[in-house]
Write a protein that binds this DNA or RNA. Structure first.
Lengths: 120, 120
DNA sequence: CGGTATCCGTACTGATACTG
DNA sequence: CAGTATCAGTACGGATACCG
């Protein structure tokens, strides 16, 4: 663990900040949704169930700022804006998707654990 | 993506809930800290910089309930409580650590992206 | 269509104090 | 040591309305 350049456990670690953007409630879902390919704002909004316009906007801005997401706006009327993953974003999204797969595959264990825990 | 049992993108998906526990602000740090081995409450608290007793307690309870963390209390005075990863928790923590490594290794890209973004 | 601005409730957060 | 209880602040999040 000590061979890492930054210490995620430390308060003001820049990687901890980016981690929070990527693993936050909406960040993960946005990144994983973009693995399916370039997507427009409202399509993304429909894909990620429950996200508001505001949160999607904020999430995408944070991810764009960190260089995980690429935003391309065409100056047409009506506006046409496309979001996609940068190479770095694709790597992060892949890792996150691995986590989702892992968890989904083992949800029976999780559910069983919850029942055991709650039976007290 | 459709081959998954649950749909993380859906609002009331049980895996989305567990994802949020594991990837939440403190969940990730607690899980990764426990990769170093069985740890006591206050040791964990010192390791994860900035976490309050309350948040650590809540975080550990959520992870224990999901079957990611094992809590073992010895009825001594003073109390001696040890936290460790379950096999499932270890798998999740490993995946999260992979993400941290990835991000730490590429922080220069992130920092550069931020500077580009802010220069507008 | 793709946002931003505003309002407003609540849920999270951290200090502090206290207990077994 | 390992928590719980209580409380005040804030930042998160959603709904709505509006703009280019």
């Amino acid at each position: 663990m000590d061979e890492l350049l930054f210490d995620v456990f430390a308060r003001n670690c820049p990687s901890r900040e980016t981690m929070e953007h990527a693993t936050g409630r909406w960040g993960t879902l946005a990144l994983v949704a973009l693995r399916d390919g370039t997507t427009r704002f409202n399509a993304l909004r429909r894909r990620v169930d429950g996200i508001s316009e505001k949160m999607l906007s904020q999430t995408l801005q944070a991810l764009e700022r960190d260089g995980l997401v690429l935003r391309e706006a065409r100056p047409t009327i009506p506006p046409h804006v496309e979001y996609s993953l940068t190479p770095l974003g694709a790597a992060v999204a892949g890792q996150l998707f691995g986590l989702i797969e892992l968890l989904e595959g083992r949800m029976p264990e999780v559910i069983a654990a919850r029942e055991t825990y709650d039976a007290r």
